[in-house]
Amino acid sequence: MERIERPRRLRKDGVRELVSETEVRATDLVAPVFVDATTDERVPIESMPGHERVPVEEAVARVEEVLETGVEAVMLFGIPESKNERGSRAWAEDGVVQEATRRVTEATDAYVITDVCLCEYTEHGHCGVLEPHAHEAAELTVENDETLPLLGSVAVSHAKAGADMVAPSGMMDGMVDAIRGALDDAGHADVPILSYAAKYESAFYGPFRDAADGAPAFGDRRHYQMDPANRREAGREVRLDVEEGADVLMVKPALPYLDIVADVRREFDRPVAAYNVSGEYAMLHAAAEKGWLDLEATARESVLSIKRAGADLVVTYFAELLAESED
């Protein structure tokens, strides 16, 4: 008698959970936290329902809220009290992320990852030092090599404040090498680097730029962030970061780039992170508010797909919702 394959046998309650291949745990998730030096009260982020900018004085309380859900790691983003052409508040000892990091690491057991970039700190909103006359140029260019030592200074200032990990996100060529050298020279050889190794110039970042006040004042970032059309290029970008000493490799955004997550997982022997970005978060919220989708179910399925593609950890604005629903 010919045997018929019946995969449905393993889909029954009781055995279904035993043979499940992928899971989303609270300890897989990183919750972004926005700390704002310009306010003394929590400010809701309209395009990201459920999220707020919090003043420095509320940073510990906000992180404790995250920890209560079972999520153990946070990523800190800062909105500084002032900005200038070079973004010097990004590496100031009394800067917003530095002060928040000190408070959070002293008061909690959270694993603190800090964003290392200049876009929130520059008047022009770009991720580095602009070439002369960039405002009038037909093609805006960030001065890559002039930006690198500044990123090193930012990373060292974060490590000195107590950051457990630093996460450079500017997509500058050589940024991992510059930061690794700066950290090692400053006595922080044990601080790992989570590199945004494949970060695309994406339309899904809009709500984040509202949240972090980091939108470009003019131009765009297509000359230093990756072209969404390119897959093979991602391998080259990631390989360079591995060679320079990156400890964790980030793909951003996540959902439209699951092929890139899978490629990085397959090709590189490093932990893989993926950023479930603000636009991915906002579109599910908008559909749920219309009654078209179930928010928790679609959020879980989305993050599950990111894990299934190969991500070891996921930075997501759904972190608390998913961790709470896990219980």
Rank of each mutant, 00 (worst) to 15 (best):
residue 117 C to P: 00
residue 134 A to L: 04
residue 90 A to Q: 02
residue 158 H to G: 06
residue 112 V to R: 01
residue 147 T to P: 03
residue 131 E to R: 14
residue 124 H to V: 06
residue 128 G to E: 02
residue 146 E to L: 13
residue 93 E to N: 11
residue 133 H to A: 13
residue 119 C to Q: 03
residue 159 A to I: 12
residue 154 V to M: 01
residue 105 T to Y: 00
residue 107 A to P: 00
residue 84 N to H: 09
residue 115 D to H: 03
residue 152 G to Y: 01
residue 144 N to P: 00
residue 133 H to F: 14
residue 115 D to L: 09
residue 153 S to G: 13
residue 147 T to W: 08
residue 137 A to P: 03
residue 158 H to R: 08
residue 160 K to W: 11
residue 154 V to I: 15
residue 108 T to V: 06
residue 157 S to H: 05
residue 109 D to A: 07
residue 84 N to T: 09
residue 149 P to D: 10
residue 91 W to A: 12
residue 117 C to D: 14
residue 156 V to P: 00
residue 100 A to R: 05
residue 118 L to P: 03
residue 133 H to T: 10
residue 89 R to L: 14
residue 129 V to G: 06
residue 127 C to N: 02
residue 99 E to H: 05
residue 114 T to R: 01
residue 108 T to I: 05
residue 116 V to C: 02
residue 145 D to G: 07
residue 92 A to M: 06
residue 114 T to H: 01
residue 159 A to R: 06
residue 142 V to K: 05
residue 107 A to E: 13
residue 131 E to F: 09
residue 154 V to S: 03
residue 149 P to C: 10
residue 109 D to F: 05
residue 157 S to K: 06
residue 84 N to K: 03
residue 103 R to I: 08
residue 93 E to T: 14
residue 94 D to A: 11
residue 116 V to E: 01
residue 144 N to M: 00
residue 89 R to V: 09
residue 127 C to P: 04
residue 88 S to R: 10
residue 117 C to T: 15
residue 152 G to F: 07
residue 112 V to K: 05
residue 160 K to Q: 14
residue 137 A to I: 12
residue 135 H to V: 13
residue 145 D to F: 06
residue 86 R to K: 12
residue 93 E to L: 10
residue 131 E to L: 14
residue 140 L to A: 07
residue 93 E to R: 14
residue 93 E to I: 08
residue 137 A to D: 09
residue 144 N to D: 06
residue 116 V to P: 02
residue 156 V to K: 01
residue 96 V to H: 02
residue 150 L to Y: 15
residue 106 E to H: 02
residue 151 L to E: 04
residue 102 R to F: 08
residue 127 C to E: 04
residue 107 A to D: 10
residue 152 G to H: 07
residue 124 H to C: 03
residue 124 H to F: 04
residue 136 E to L: 12
residue 99 E to M: 10
residue 130 L to Q: 02
residue 85 E to W: 10
residue 124 H to Y: 01
residue 86 R to H: 12
residue 100 A to G: 08
residue 157 S to T: 13
residue 139 E to F: 11
residue 127 C to H: 04
residue 147 T to A: 11
residue 137 A to F: 05
residue 144 N to T: 07
residue 99 E to V: 15
residue 133 H to D: 15
residue 130 L to K: 00
residue 123 E to V: 08
residue 102 R to G: 11
residue 148 L to T: 13
residue 129 V to E: 08
residue 86 R to A: 14
residue 160 K to P: 02
residue 118 L to Y: 02
residue 132 P to W: 06
residue 99 E to S: 13
residue 95 G to T: 09
residue 116 V to I: 14
residue 119 C to W: 06
residue 85 E to P: 08
residue 103 R to A: 15
residue 113 I to Q: 03
residue 88 S to P: 05
